[in-house]
Design a protein around this nucleic acid. Structure first.
Lengths: 141, 141
DNA sequence: GTTCCTGCAAAGAGTTTGCACGAAA
DNA sequence: TTTCGTGCAAACTCTTTGCAGGAAC
């Protein structure tokens, strides 16, 4: 997405298109994994783009609120990525800390159960921890 | 469970049966909901039982590790309860903050998906946020 | 010209850790 | 009598907040 398109997107969500927001959006756009506020801050810094960490936090929360980004919480820490058509969750290896997508979290089944009680689901978070195939050694290499 | 039974239980997990651990176990045993470390600390204090908060944290983590307690993370905060036959998760109302059990989290279906990749699931956490029937006003009272 | 946003600095919540003393087995 | 657990204090991580100056619309 080009810089102008990003600005248009931000405006369409009633957000002012500051250069800080554009830069943070670009980082998310160029990443193929979810990132913590600090990771984003580091990536920007290493490109000599200095945005206060507090601003990074504020922008990310805003993105999540507006539905531009998806927020995941892993080990009591927040991670962000651009929202795709389908949201996803992560399987995290407790040895190598690599994350792997969980495509279908079955939340619709849980929503069904809750709707019987007239509970309206707005958001959810799922973390699954375990050992990946590489660390398990189950690949018999 | 009597005090002696609690001590036996602790010993059977290779844990020394200190009075602090017994008291923390009792609090968990007498609660019908999951509790944060601080809530447990407060309950003890109000009974003139003074256990350092750091100890409460250490004991709870130990209980979770040994499978005596279940640890849930809600809003980046840890909650503990004695482990039942079936574990459970919580639906948390974002208005009144009441927690309601989610009996079946469908984790077995997710485990199935992951086992195809040779990933071994060890633990997981699920939080669902939304509006409960009372706060939603959908009960037409 | 407002309104909204940012940087700075400071504080906040929740949790963890090192160490010396003290209690359980 | 050795091993393990606790209290105390301090530190730590991640995140949030108040405020005054500055940029977007």
């Amino acid at each position: 997405m080009s810089e102008n398109n990003i600005k248009t997107l931000l405006n369409s969500h009633n957000l002012k298109a500051t250069w800080q927001r554009v830069e943070i959006f670009k980082v998310l756009q160029n990443s193929n994994e979810c990132l913590s506020a600090d990771q984003i801050y580091q990536k920007l810094s290493s490109n000599n783009i200095n945005i206060d960490l507090a601003t990074v936090y504020r922008v990310l929360d805003l993105f999540a609120e507006k539905g531009i980004a998806q927020k995941s919480i892993i080990n009591r820490k927040c991670f962000f990525e651009l929202k795709k058509i389908d949201h996803c969750h992560y399987f995290v290896c407790i040895k190598c800390h690599q994350k792997s997508n969980i495509v279908d979290c079955k939340i619709n089944l849980i929503e069904e159960e809750l709707s019987k009680k007239n509970f309206k689901v707005l958001s959810h978070n799922l973390e699954v921890y375990g050992i990946c195939n590489k660390c398990y050694g189950g690949d018999k290499r």
